[in-house]
């Protein structure tokens, strides 16, 4: 049975249906990169986290990587799941010396059939599970007149399929143990159907719906589900948008975003915009009448 083996030796010869898709379209996820601003170990003793064991899916860069670093600094053992083994290794290296352990698990979230076994291995390695964060995300560049089903389904696979495949077993485990926190990193993009990237927005709206339903389903079992809707965060995804000529100001760092996420999850918030100002933006966007929205270039 699988629990004897180490999660880092993941399953069968790995991935890569999704890998092709992502690579060939040269994008990535919430993705992001820590871009060298790896936070140094804090001088003050780290706060003792309320969780002891966590899984972060989509951990190789950006918000996911920042979350892993912060959690291990606080003494949490983290299974860091991502497709790119080299970046996971680098992350583990960066976190060496922290009070918590990083256990890398190479896995392509679009390989849904491998998730149950990978999840079980991760939980057995950790000896339980208190927190899971689904931070994997894929936003492919889509032209204004482009309707590419292949790209769209790739985004659907990573953002929705992978999310369901990972959070279903986590939800079931946490229900049976009557404790735990589930965090899904959605996006402000799920608030409205914008013309820019129809399916990316649709996947985030689907995530919101799914996470809300999980929250309601698990409430009686003392399991909390927190939906995070980040605005602009300094990640590879943002760098990609800038490279396409968009002007983006006021982005927060992945580290600040990670701190805000953990604060929100620990304080039992249901749905949080990060940073807060995006709640106002979200409210406005949700309430623009359709006949106006149609003509807007956002």
């Amino acid at each position: 049975m699988s629990h004897a083996s180490s999660p880092s030796s993941t399953s069968a010869g790995a991935p890569h249906s999704g890998a092709h898709a992502t690579d060939s379209h040269g994008h990535d996820a919430h993705g992001h990169d820590a871009h060298g601003h790896d936070a140094p170990a804090p001088a003050a003793p780290a706060r003792r986290a309320k969780e002891r064991r966590a899984i972060v899916v989509g951990a190789s860069s950006g918000i996911g990587a920042a979350l892993v670093k912060q959690l291990v600094r606080e003494g949490v053992d983290v299974v860091a799941v991502a497709r790119r083994a080299a970046q996971l290794e680098a992350l583990a290296h960066d976190c060496a010396g922290s009070p918590g352990r990083v256990i890398p698990l190479t896995h392509d979230v679009a390989r849904f059939d491998e998730v149950e076994a990978a999840f079980e291995r991760a939980v057995r390695e950790l000896g339980g599970l208190d927190l899971i964060v689904y931070a994997a995300g894929l936003m492919l560049e889509v032209g204004p007149n482009e309707f590419d089903t292949g790209k769209d389904l790739d985004m659907l696979g990573v953002n929705v399929g992978g999310c369901i495949a990972w959070l279903n077993p986590a939800a079931n485990l946490m229900r049976t143990q009557r404790s735990g926190t589930i965090v899904g990193i959605s996006s402000i993009a799920g608030e409205r159907g914008r013309k820019g990237n129809p399916v990316y927005g649709a996947t985030k709206a689907a995530m919101n719906h799914y996470l809300e339903a999980l929250r309601n389903r698990l409430a009686d079992w003392a399991v909390h589900v927190c939906t995070i809707k980040p605005g602009f965060v300094e990640t590879a995804m943002l760098a990609q948008a800038r490279a396409q000529g968009r002007t983006i100001k006021g982005a927060i760092s992945a580290e600040d975003c990670a701190s805000a996420i953990l604060r929100a999850a620990r304080s039992g918030k249901n749905e949080v915009f990060v940073p807060f100002k995006w709640r106002i933006v979200g409210f406005v966007i949700r309430n623009i009448p359709s006949f106006v929205f149609k003509g807007m270039n956002i």
């Binding site: 389904l153 790739d154 696979g157």
Partner: peptide, 14 residues
């Protein structure tokens, strides 16, 4: 169909 989604119909490995 895109490879990522094709996995949906793949029989689970268990």
């Amino acid at each position: 169909m895109a490879p990522a989604l094709r996995s949906l119909s793949v029989a689970p490995n268990r």
